[in-house]
Design a protein around this nucleic acid. Structure first.
Length: 258
DNA sequence: ATGACGAATCTTATTCGA
């Protein structure tokens, strides 16, 4: 089973690129973030014509996540992250597909830091960590994937010294990520490529992609029951070079079995 | 500190992203 995550930066602006990538990469499951579309403006028929069942949670202007599957209808478990009834951002969605629980997430950016947006990022991270602990306790196959908006180490940043005060790289955020992983999750890309410079995002400015001035912020965390099935993982970085691309590239894992 | 780019919106300017 091949599972992918892709921050599309606007599902309607990205539709041709998304469909092209789905056809080329043919993931069984795809988690999307930053739909930037209200619920009723999601291009459902185009996705279904591409062969995917889909559930999504849109929001006007910002955020929004979706889970696509061509190996059975996603059985939705939840479409909000527990822990704050007042949080109305569409940033988390969870579904069971083929016996694997898949959490699709878009963690807040948090800039500028410090400030209320940074506080929201940290509290969202805390809620995710609390929820992740409960998922792990079930001792079933679980994947938490998406745009974490965190570069976990210096190896994940083209120029670490320029990012020290940024909300994606501040010590509080890196420690939150490491604490989450330390519950017992496996960072799939880092497990298979412990020493390689691998990026998933290149901003639109200053020819960042051409200069390979990138960041690794889209991650796959695997529960032990999934980790033992991990065969391969990678980034479809060439997709970032396509016309009208997102600023992120898709990331994927391949698991043993259906 | 700002801006470079791109997307969305109560658009011709502003907000957000990372």
């Amino acid at each position: 089973m091949k599972i992918a995550t892709y921050n599309v930066n606007g599902i309607n602006a990205r539709l041709p690129v998304l469909l092209r990538w789905l056809k080329e990469s043919a993931p069984d499951v795809a988690c999307l973030q930053e739909l930037k579309a209200p619920q009723e403006k999601f291009p459902e028929s185009a996705i279904r014509e591409a062969g995917y069942d889909v559930i999504w949670h849109g929001q006007k202007s910002w955020n929004g996540i979706a889970i696509l599957s061509k190996v059975g209808k996603p059985q939705e478990i939840r479409r909000t992250l527990p822990g704050d009834e007042e949080d109305v951002h569409s940033r988390y969605m969870e579904a069971a597909i083929n016996g694997v629980l898949i959490g699709c997430l878009y963690l807040p950016n948090g800039n500028p830091a410090p400030g209320p947006k940074f506080d929201y990022k940290l509290s969202w991270f805390k809620r995710l960590t609390d929820h992740a602990k409960e998922l792990l306790a079930q001792k079933t196959p679980v994947i938490l994937t998406g745009d974490y908006n965190v570069m976990p180490t210096d190896l994940d940043v083209y120029k670490p010294e320029r990012w020290v005060d940024d909300a994606l790289f501040r010590p509080e955020v890196k420690s939150a990520f490491h604490a989450l992983v330390a519950q017992g999750w496996t960072d799939a890309i880092r497990k298979l490529y412990p020493d390689q410079k691998i990026y998933t995002f290149w901003d639109y400015f200053r020819n960042a992609y051409e200069r390979d001035a990138g960041l690794r912020i889209d991650h796959f965390l695997l529960s032990p029951e999934v980790d033992k099935r991990l065969i391969a993982a990678g980034v479809d970085r060439h997709v970032r070079g396509w016309e009208k691309s997102s600023d992120h590239a898709p990331v994927w894992v391949e698991l043993k079995g259906a």
